[in-house]
Design a protein around this nucleic acid. Structure first.
Lengths: 149, 149
DNA sequence: GATTGTAATAGGAACCGTTCTCGTTCTAGG
DNA sequence: CCTAGAACGAGAACGGTTCCTATTACAATC
């Protein structure tokens, strides 16, 4: 299940919110559109700044609602700021490049072979402490273009 | 360069701190020992609670110093709490199992093949945005033993 | 097309993990 | 020993995030 940016995305968002008894209001739609437009994980501050219709408190609340509904996902970088992106199954599985200098995060899709190896490892893992792996998270840490200059 | 838990570790800590003009004081030593004893990434709250000789402010300050000196490393889970562990080159390269339910983090060492694939990918990466990868971070997300019960 | 109950909104207060301040204590070097 | 600079520790301050609550929008029913 993978959607291009368009109407489908909003239809899925509507459905997923309904599953948890929530509405896909115009404010939430604006939020999702801002995330899509960014094309990379963005901080709440960036979101609030990007659209006048996004007051801080509503943005935080709606990000929480959308996260719970599985429409957006929280992303961790190296700094303490929370970043959000549209959920992976709506935009395609990918990983992140994290700048250790400024904290910026951008998307990146690894070679299929890497992906396959990781998926296998996750599938096989069952530790003696009873941990059950369900997904993997791979980040490459380094220096982004603007920090390298 | 890989050390068992023992005197060596403290010698290296001393040397690395000296490199950034810092001392390996008794308080800092207690901190490192608490981290070693934990054997997994722990929160500052856990550290402060674990030893009476670790007041909050000093713990935070010394974690920052030790991180800068390359003796400890900050680890991100899924919650907002900062967790710390002894730097990888002192304990061996490894990855983390992150419980999506309670946020707990434990160590885990992947099969050599996975590791090799990742190292290759990092080595090859150079995106058109100029990102330069230096390291990778692989976490397996799932449910820990006590949350699964 | 009013009514009415429920959900969403938005401003600001509160919260809490973290960082800073500053007076005190320690320590290495002279 | 003495002293200057480093480290310490208690508490204040900070800032990102969450919570509170009055207000507004919505959707279903009369």
């Amino acid at each position: 299940m993978l959607f291009a940016v368009g109407e489908d995305l909003h239809a899925v968002a509507t459905a997923r919110l309904r599953r948890v008894d929530q509405r896909y209001t115009s404010g939430r739609r604006v939020l999702v559109e801002a995330l899509v437009e960014a094309g990379r994980p963005v901080t709440t501050a960036e979101l609030v700044a990007s659209r006048r219709e996004l007051p801080q408190s509503t943005t935080y609340r709606n990000l929480a609602v959308l996260e719970q509904a599985g429409v957006v996902r929280r992303v961790l970088g190296t700094d303490e700021l929370a970043r959000f992106e549209v959920a992976e199954d709506l935009t395609g599985h990918h990983h992140h490049l994290v700048c250790v200098s400024c904290g910026a995060v951008e998307d990146f899709e690894p070679p299929r072979r890497v992906e396959q190896t990781l998926a296998d490892a996750v599938g096989r893992l069952r530790t003696r402490t009873g941990f059950r792996a369900e997904a993997h998270r791979l980040d490459l840490l380094g220096t982004c273009g603007s920090c390298a200059e």
